[in-house]
């Protein structure tokens, strides 16, 4: 049968509700082995890699906002400034960075829409609605919004 069940050590009394659990009996078990977590734990498993990539999409979000702020700044100053902005965007290195950022942005959109049904437990008639009914409309909205923005900008001459 199972062994290793040492006599239950005395637990520290539970303090106020907001205090963290105080387990103070380590001194009676000086040799507990506590493994250290590697700084690179997020490389250890594919789901963790995916997680950290998903979290790093925030950098692409910040980058895109920075590009937009530059654009608004150039636009509201003068035509010459705006030409400068266009020239900057046309640099091969900028196009490369924007390609990578765009891939991250799409990854953010897809993961965000896919995870939304998890966070929203919508019930109709006592039954939880299927996830596709929550993420589906978001995908449709994404397509609609993209089409509208594209249409508005493509029809400016």
């Amino acid at each position: 049968m199972s062994s290793g069940q040492s006599s239950a050590p005395a637990l520290a009394p539970v303090h106020g509700e907001n205090e963290q659990p105080q387990v103070t009996y380590t001194e009676f078990h000086p040799r507990w082995y506590r493994p250290q977590i590697s700084t690179y734990w997020w490389l250890g498993k594919w789901p963790y890699v995916k997680f950290i990539l998903r979290e790093l999409t925030s950098v692409a979000v910040a980058w895109t906002v920075a590009v937009m702020l530059m654009q608004i700044f150039a636009l509201t100053h003068s035509g010459a400034f705006y030409d400068g902005f266009e020239a900057l965007m046309a640099l091969p290195v900028m196009i490369l960075v924007n390609f990578i950022a765009f891939a991250f942005l799409v990854f953010h959109s897809v993961t965000w829409f896919n995870l939304a049904p998890k966070a929203m437990a919508v019930r109709v008639g006592g039954k939880r609605v299927h996830g596709i009914l929550i993420s589906g409309p978001q995908y449709l909205a994404w397509i609609a919004v993209s089409a509208i923005v594209l249409f508005i900008l493509a029809t400016r001459t």
Binding site: E86, M89, S109
Partner: peptide
């Protein structure tokens, strides 16, 4: 960010510089 940013970056950061669409 999920709904609006991809198309913004696609147009101004990629499509226009690569002349996929007119400026």
């Amino acid at each position: 960010a999920g709904l609006f940013l991809p198309i913004e970056l696609l147009i101004f950061g990629i499509a226009i510089p690569l002349e996929w669409m007119h400026q």
